[in-house]
Structure formats: structure tokens, C-alpha cells
């Protein structure tokens, strides 16, 4: 079982889900329904979490 690969793939998925939230963010901005900040923070959390884990796995793959 390649744990590193599993973490790498899930991190990528989390990052993607974060990116996919741009669409509802756009809807929130169009409708001005007050949820834009929630989507902005959600994108930040998902992209940062996914991105950092993804990059860390990548670094591990190169140097370790």
C-alpha cells in the first residue's frame, strides 16, 4: 500500500473541490446573497489544505 500516493491523490482532489467552489462564489457575487465570504474562506481552506499536502508529498517524493 502506497500511503504517500493515497495522500497525494486525496490532496489533489481536495484542491480541485476548492477550485470548483469558484462557480458558487460567482453565483454569490451575482445574487449578493451574503454567502460570498463563506465561499471565499471555503476556497482558501480547501485549496491551501489540498495544495500544501500535495506539494509536501511532491517534495517528499523528490528529496526523500
Amino acid at each position: 500500500m502506497k500511503t504517500g500516493l493515497i495522500v497525494y491523490m486525496i490532496a489533489l482532489l481536495v484542491f480541485y473541490l476548492g477550485v470548483s467552489m469558484f462557480l458558487p462564489l460567482f453565483v454569490a457575487l451575482v445574487y449578493q446573497d451574503g454567502s460570498a465570504f463563506a465561499f471565499f474562506v471555503s476556497i482558501l481552506i480547501a485549496c491551501c489544505l489540498g495544495g500544501v499536502v500535495y506539494l509536501l508529498q511532491g517534495v517528499k517524493k523528490i528529496f526523500i
Partner: peptide
């Protein structure tokens, strides 16, 4: 994915 999907519901 389920966990990430909760973020907009909880934060809004």
C-alpha cells in the same frame, strides 16, 4: 469530499 463539501454550509 464529504468533509470539504460541508465548508460552505457551515461557514455560511
Amino acid at each position: 469530499a464529504g468533509f470539504i463539501g460541508t465548508l460552505p454550509y457551515l461557514l455560511s
